[in-house]
Design a protein around this nucleic acid. Sequence first.
DNA 1: AGTTTTGGTGTTGGAACCCT
DNA 2: AGGGTTCCAACACCAAAACT
Length: 186
Amino acid sequence: MDTQSLQAFLAVADTQSFSRAAEQLYLTQPAVSKRIATLESQVGTRLFDRIGRRIALTEAGSVLLPQARRILFSVEDSRRALANLSGQVGGKLTLATSHHIGLHRLPPLLKQYTQRHSEVELDLHFLDSEQAYQGVLDGTLEMAVVTLAPTLTSNCRSWNCGVTGSVLPVLPITLLTSSHLKASSP
DNA sequence: AGTTTTGGTGTTGGAACCCT
DNA sequence: AGGGTTCCAACACCAAAACT
């Protein structure tokens, strides 16, 4: 089970299409089919049901999907950890925020950050606080800026970062990160 | 140097869609 | 309803790179 096959699996699962997955991965569609076929033979079960021109995750595929995300996330995290050994800050940072914070509070901070760490590729998503929190929990997001007080679990850390603004409604801003992110208090 | 792996193109078959 | 068109997944085969 290699990361290339898992990437292809995630791309197909996300796009519901071998062709669109191929586009996403800068491959041809047959190459994606091969990767999926390889993965299916490795796990010994079908991961997608081919229903005419449509495809759908099988039960096995549904089970593998979150695991695959975590594996790839872990691999990327390992790369980051190794880069950290040399003091280098780089790679992809997957971050979610609400529209309000993302549009009004984050731009200057993100600008400052990307100027300081030009090797970091920011992958910014606009999501509801609940969705962002869930993303951090299931490993699809590394960081989220939310306006709720989450029920923290062992795989999630949080910092209180003030409030959204001086006019009502004033909501507390919380920064959430995956617990395995090597991050100090912001 | 031979073998294996990976990804490419071209082609085929099936399903969905559109038009008459 | 039926024929033509389009789209998609799969297959066969080939080339290049990597490995032994």
